Amino acid sequence: MVIIVGEDGWRQVPDETWPEPNSVAVIRSVLEDGTVLVDNGVNLKPLHNEREIDVEVNNTVEYSDIEGVIRVVSSAPLRSSLSEQITIEDVRKEYLWSEKGLGSGFSDFGGYPDVKARARELIETQLERRKKLDKIKARPVKGVLFTGPPGTGKTHLARIIARESAAEFYLVSGPTVVSKWVGDTEDTLRKIFEAATTSESGRAIIFFDEIDSIAERRGGDSHESSRRLVAQLLTLMDGFDDKGKSVIVIAATNRAEALDPALLRPGRFDWEIQFGMPDLYDRLEILKVRAGKLTTTGELPLEDVASLTGGWSAAELTAIWTEAALVAAGDDRGAIAAEDLAAAYERVASKPRRSIEGGED
C-alpha cells in the first residue's frame, strides 16, 4: 500500500498506478493446502488460490504473482507459442525408421503363409504397380488393418512390407503421438501424412501400432480430445492426397471390436489381415527361421518343441531362443545345443501365461 501525504491531507495510491501484467500457465499439481503448482514454460511456480477457483491438473489458468490464480482459461493445456509447432522435419526425425531397422525381408518371417501371400499382394498391386492402377482409374487401397492377439508378428510384418517395397516407414505408436497441448496431436498427424506424401522414394507406409489406444469407439462418455483425434484421423484417411505416390496406412490392433466403426468403412481400412495364433506348421517355421540366424551345433529337437508349444505366440517362441542363448553362454559355450533348447523351453513354459483366444491348433 502506498500513501501520498500533502498539505491538504493524504490519500492512497490506487492499484491501477502500477498494473501487474497477468500470465498464463498450465496447472501441474494441486497441493493439499490449496497451493497450485503451474508450468509457465520456464519453471514450476507455486501460486495461492485465495479466490477458491475450482481448478484441476492440466487446466490452463490466468494468474499474477500478487493475485494468484485469477481464472481458468481452458480445461485443457494450451500451447504457449506458435514457434513450438511441429515441422515435417521434426516428424521425420521422430517417426521415420531407418532402413536398417526394417529387418531382412520375408525370409525373416516364419509361418503364416496366407498372411504373407496377402502382404505380397499388397506390395505388388498397391505399391509396385501404382501406375497400372492409375491407368485403370481404380481407387487404390488406402488402409490395411492387421488384427490378432499380441505377439503374433503384426508390427514385424509391417516393417518387412516397407523393406520389401523400398518404402519409407513411419511408425506411430498410439500413446506416443498424444500430446498434452490442445491441437498438437491433430497437427502431428497432419504432418505425418504430409511427410509421407512428399517422400523422396515415392512410396511410404504410415503404421499405427495399437491404433485402438487412439481411435476407440466414440460415445457419450468419450473425452473431447479423443473425439477430436478420431475425427482428424478420419478426415486424413478420407482426404489425403498422395500426389500420385504410393502411400498406404497400416494399423495393428488386438482389440478390433474397440475401434470406432467409422474407421472400418470402405475407403479407409479396406483390407483386414487376421493374424491367428500360430498352428503346428507355423510354430515349426518360426523356430527354424530363428535357428537359421543363430550359431547352433548338432541336431535340434525343433519338431518336439513345436509340438509342445500349442497356443504359444510367435513372441513366446522367440523367447525360447533368447533363453537358450543364455544357457549356452552361462555354460561358457559359443553355440546352442539340443540340451540348451530343452532347458530354454522349460524356462519359458514355467513362466505365468495368460490364455489368449484363438490359441488352439
Rank of each mutant, 00 (worst) to 15 (best):
V73M: 10
E186Y: 06
A158H: 07
R163P: 09
L127T: 07
K137S: 14
S104W: 08
E84A: 12
S107Q: 12
S179A: 14
G110K: 11
V144P: 12
D184E: 15
T125V: 14
L96F: 08
E67V: 02
S173Y: 13
I161S: 04
K100V: 02
S104I: 08
L78E: 10
A158Y: 08
E89M: 02
V144F: 14
L133Q: 12
R92G: 02
S64D: 05
E164L: 10
K131D: 15
I161P: 10
V69N: 00
A166R: 08
S81W: 01
V172K: 04
I123A: 06
P113A: 10
V182M: 04
T188C: 04
V73R: 09
G148E: 08
R118N: 10
S104C: 00
H156N: 03
L145Q: 06
I70N: 10
A76V: 13
T185D: 06
E99I: 13
R51D: 13
V73Y: 07
G148M: 06
G110T: 11
K131E: 15
D54C: 03
D187I: 01
D108K: 05
V177T: 13
V72N: 03
R190F: 12
D184L: 00
L127E: 09
D90L: 05
I123H: 10
E62N: 00
E121D: 13
P150Q: 09
K191H: 05
E89F: 01
R163T: 12
K180M: 10
R120P: 08
S179T: 11
G143S: 02
T176S: 15
T185V: 08
V178C: 03
S75F: 00
D187K: 15
K135D: 13
R159F: 02
T188E: 03
W97A: 14
S173Q: 10
E124H: 04
G110D: 13
D134T: 09
V57T: 14
E99G: 02
